[in-house]
Amino acid sequence: MPPLTVYWALVRAGFRRYSTYRQATVAGATTNVMFGFLRTYGMFAAAAAAGGVLAGYDRPRLATFVWVSQGMLATINIWGPPEYAERVRTGDAVTDLLRPVHPVWQLLAVDLGRAGFALLTRFVAPVVVGALAFGLYAPARWSTYPAFALSLVLALLVTFGCRHALFCSVHWLLDVRGPMTAWVLFSTLLSGMVFPLWILPEPLPALVVYGMPFASMVQAPMDVLVERGDPLRLLLTQAAWAAVALPAAVLIQRRGERKMVIQGG
């Protein structure tokens, strides 16, 4: 196992790598802000129709839910391009295998660096705009802040693990577009990115929030932040999904490597 300094260097490289695309960062943050307004007014309309509170979320909580989840979108990279799958398809993944670091941990470290840069830019921009335009919910308990930070890291790990496992399907399929379409569909509807999952009819909310990994990517961190539900249960659910997703990614990677045919000789 390489020492932490190796991973730290990869984290820094990931940060540096993404920090070179400044115009793309501005464009992405602008898009997040635009959709933030759309989602907020939609949520407020739904809350008004429900008598002011929607599934336990009042207006400040809904605004927080929308704007912080808009910031999380790029931070956890839930809909980012399937870079690893593309590297396998073109054959460039061969270089990932030739380094003295396990490819999954190598990619995770780089992804953490990318997330660090996204946190400072793509996360902060929508949250600031949301706070200025609508006012956000201020947590009542101080412990909510570290709990949210932990929840965000766990969301990142779950998302990375699930996405990498999905990308590894390219070893068998040679093209990941089909699985990616399914991913976008499920992660959009079942993560809480479009609406809080608790508005679904019973018994779907508990099933989706605890029984599927998608809610651990967005819904759980949002509920921790707006202090809806038991934060410990949410964090444990996320940790459990991270403990499933990451080993699954490693296992599927290993199986995929046995199938690997480096394209183009």
């Binding site: 490289a13 540096r16 790598r17 993404y18 070179t20 695309y21 054959g91 460039d92 061969v94 270089t95 030739l98 380094r99 183009g264 000789g265």
Partner: peptide
Amino acid sequence: GVVFGQRSQLWWDL
């Protein structure tokens, strides 16, 4: 050490 003429082990963006 490995060099594949048609692949790159360098970080494209750095």
